[in-house]
Computed example of a mutant assay.
Amino acid sequence: MPVAVNLLLGVPAVVPAFLVWYYLTNGPLADLGWTRRDPNENDGMLLWLVIVVPVVALFATVWGLANGWMRRRTVPGTPPYPYWTIATVLTLAPTLVAVGLG
Rank of each mutant, 00 (worst) to 15 (best):
W69C: 10
V50A: 15
P54G: 05
T74Q: 12
G27R: 00
R72F: 05
N40D: 12
A98G: 09
G64D: 09
G44W: 08
L47K: 07
W48V: 09
R71H: 13
Y83M: 08
E41V: 03
P82S: 07
Y83P: 03
P94Y: 02
V97M: 12
A66Y: 01
L65P: 02
T78V: 12
W48G: 14
R73V: 09
V50L: 15
T91Y: 01
L32I: 03
T88D: 06
V50I: 14
W63N: 05
L32N: 01
L92W: 15
V75W: 13
R36E: 10
T91W: 01
D31S: 12
T85K: 11
G68Q: 07
V89M: 05
V89L: 08
A60E: 06
Y83W: 15
D38S: 11
A66C: 08
Y81W: 13
V97A: 15
A66E: 15
R71A: 05
L47R: 10
T78A: 09
W48D: 06
F59I: 06
A93W: 07
P79G: 11
L92P: 02
T91P: 02
G100K: 02
A93L: 15
V50M: 14
T78L: 02
A30T: 10
V50F: 15
T91H: 01
P79A: 10
G64Y: 09
R72D: 11
V56S: 03
V56N: 15
T85A: 05
P76M: 10
N67V: 09
V62F: 04
G100S: 13
R71S: 10
M45H: 04
N40A: 11
M45Y: 04
R37S: 11
R73L: 04
P76T: 06
W63I: 04
T78P: 10
L29P: 03
T35S: 04
A30P: 13
Y81C: 02
T61S: 13
P54N: 12
G77P: 03
R72Q: 04
G100F: 15
T78R: 14
N26T: 08
R73N: 08
L90M: 11
P94K: 01
G44I: 01
R37L: 02
P39A: 00
Y83H: 08
V75T: 13
A60W: 06
N26K: 01
V75S: 11
V52K: 09
A93M: 10
I86C: 00
G68P: 03
I51V: 15
F59E: 11
V56C: 08
V55P: 03
L101H: 11
P54R: 10
P79F: 06
E41S: 14
P82D: 02
V75C: 05
T78D: 12
R71V: 01
G33S: 00
I86F: 00
R72C: 03
P76I: 03
L90P: 05
A66F: 10
G77F: 11
L65W: 14
V52G: 09
R72T: 02
R36Q: 13
G64T: 14
